[in-house]
Design a protein around this nucleic acid. Sequence first.
DNA 1: TGTTAGCACTCCATTTAATTGAGTGCTAAC
DNA 2: GTTAGCACTCAATTAAATGGAGTGCTAACA
Lengths: 347, 347
Amino acid sequence: MEMDERKAKILQAIIRNYLETGEPVGSRTISKYTDLNLSSATIRNEMADLEEMGYIVQPHTSAGRIPTDKGYRFYVDTMMEAKEQELAEVKDVLLQRQDRLEDMLRSLVKFLAKDTQYATMITAPSVQKNRLKFVQLSRVDEHSYLAVIVMEGNIIKNRLLAVDEAIDDETLLKLNMLLNTQLSGMAVQDINLSIISRMKTQAGIHSDIISNVIDAVGEVIAEDEDLQVYTSGTDNIFRYPELADQQNASQLISAFEEKQLLGNLLIGESDESGEGPGTGIQVYIGGENASQSMKDCSVVTATYELGDGLRGTIGIVGPRRMDYDKVVGTLKTLQTKLDDIYGRKEE
Amino acid sequence: MEMDERKAKILQAIIRNYLETGEPVGSRTISKYTDLNLSSATIRNEMADLEEMGYIVQPHTSAGRIPTDKGYRFYVDTMMEAKEQELAEVKDVLLQRQDRLEDMLRSLVKFLAKDTQYATMITAPSVQKNRLKFVQLSRVDEHSYLAVIVMEGNIIKNRLLAVDEAIDDETLLKLNMLLNTQLSGMAVQDINLSIISRMKTQAGIHSDIISNVIDAVGEVIAEDEDLQVYTSGTDNIFRYPELADQQNASQLISAFEEKQLLGNLLIGESDESGEGPGTGIQVYIGGENASQSMKDCSVVTATYELGDGLRGTIGIVGPRRMDYDKVVGTLKTLQTKLDDIYGRKEE
DNA sequence: TGTTAGCACTCCATTTAATTGAGTGCTAAC
DNA sequence: GTTAGCACTCAATTAAATGGAGTGCTAACA
């Protein structure tokens, strides 16, 4: 048996209807809902076929049909119309200062949760190139010095160092010169022992503090690697009865508590084909999710880029009967806007 | 009617038992559970009295008794034994570097959630004195300069400034000198217009950038004022059936999503009497909570201090039948450990 | 050969009734 | 003041009855 146009139309009608209502869809409903002008009996025959083919199932003998993962998959792959979304307000969110990236991400993920009414998550962008732009050591008080580290993409990090030895202003200036001539523009993975030992030699009696700074750089990078995940709208799962029962809700909320594990969900393989909006948008339906706790959910992920190779992932989690058209549309639109803001700059 | 010793013992037995089981407690149970050697009939009489006095109620005519808010209040005020808790691991958490305060708070709140099995929250400490310690402007690249602002308590903030005019190294040095001589040690609220205009005069043609830096300082302070709240263990509410039903769970999870509102819960009035561990620990039982969404919960709050006037609040949220002894004990112990680490330093 | 009306059948969901049992209040005796 | 005894109450559980949405199948029709 194979999928003909009429079957596809019926399947689409079933799915559309189920997305709206969340109730199993009967043959009579479809008979009226579509413009196919077929009696419920005919629809019943077709539905029996669609069930045999695995696109829909009955929760029990005398109920209507609901889509299977395979059904949704077919819908998403061939019938979905990702409409561009109005996201006027988001522009304000995105235009927040670059040096308040965290706030921006928090606002963004909150905005998306409110807009879509699903649970949302976003990973902080991780630097692809990891190039050092600027390093500076400053005296804060007698025994504490502040190392400021700026990376490509204007990621700024601070580390406070406890230092016993006194360093006079002139030496400090020299050390800073040394740090910047050696490290500026350098890719982090290229900082090897020979460079370090050369710097230490040049620093003379202050080689200790140079080690400290370099250690700090190492730490900062490491820190950046266990990626931060921001979430919002986890309470939205209570909007969908199929997720709101105790078992499910508990599992999902727990999953959202474990940011680290969540992150792993987001950094799955992404299609690297092409450029521009729509790239890297992925839909995981029900059982397709890597995580067991998400087996009754669908997850839509999208990569985003803030320029300078700063790349992260957004995830939107809802019930299987998520409004895929809207969610994918929203993410596409968001990507477009980000492109407008950051993409252009790069050229 | 008044509370005599025997009534108190019975009330205590009822509460202890209810805390454990979560089931209404009957007279027979108490008759056996206590060493009072009284028959269930006598207990029944006493229970009737306790009910009349408002310490306990029956969920329905033929059920055992459960404590009222007033009953818990009596227990907490007069019978609780806040035992010191073993919190060996927490020391590692607390000893994290000061310049990674956020990480420390996240770890701490997570630790407490795991230890107590309740939902936890913590506000980032807000600076009481708000004194500037150090300000520095550095060139990152041609058009962007970095303002580093360090406040008393080693709170470090960064702001990236876009600057059109070129500033040579020497000028930069001078500007930094100017910034620090004028601003170091200064309380933020004392930076007034006359100081600003004096600085601008001294900066000459570079007065613009000085304004920028001062604006940045203002922003940084403002930013610090809308306090960050970290939460953990919200999934723990599902451990307690009385909180886990859809209505309640949904409300609570929503409340925990709204960090800002949560914060208000935490910064209610605190008893300012005395010093040392146990100070500023507050218990809010059921309806005593300011927030409607917490009406079926009890909240225990404690202030904490990291030295240098850095003060914040911890909150632990559980069911009414929370293990008050343990929670209060845990918070006291935590305060002691913080005192050990930070308190000593100050003298 | 595809479509449709008709009908018996299935099974979940909801309502109603019956049963159980923990726990009480009250009385009367100690 | 304490306690045994007993009738009573009421939530919770189990069982039975009812209703209805929706199906599959058959037979007739275009």
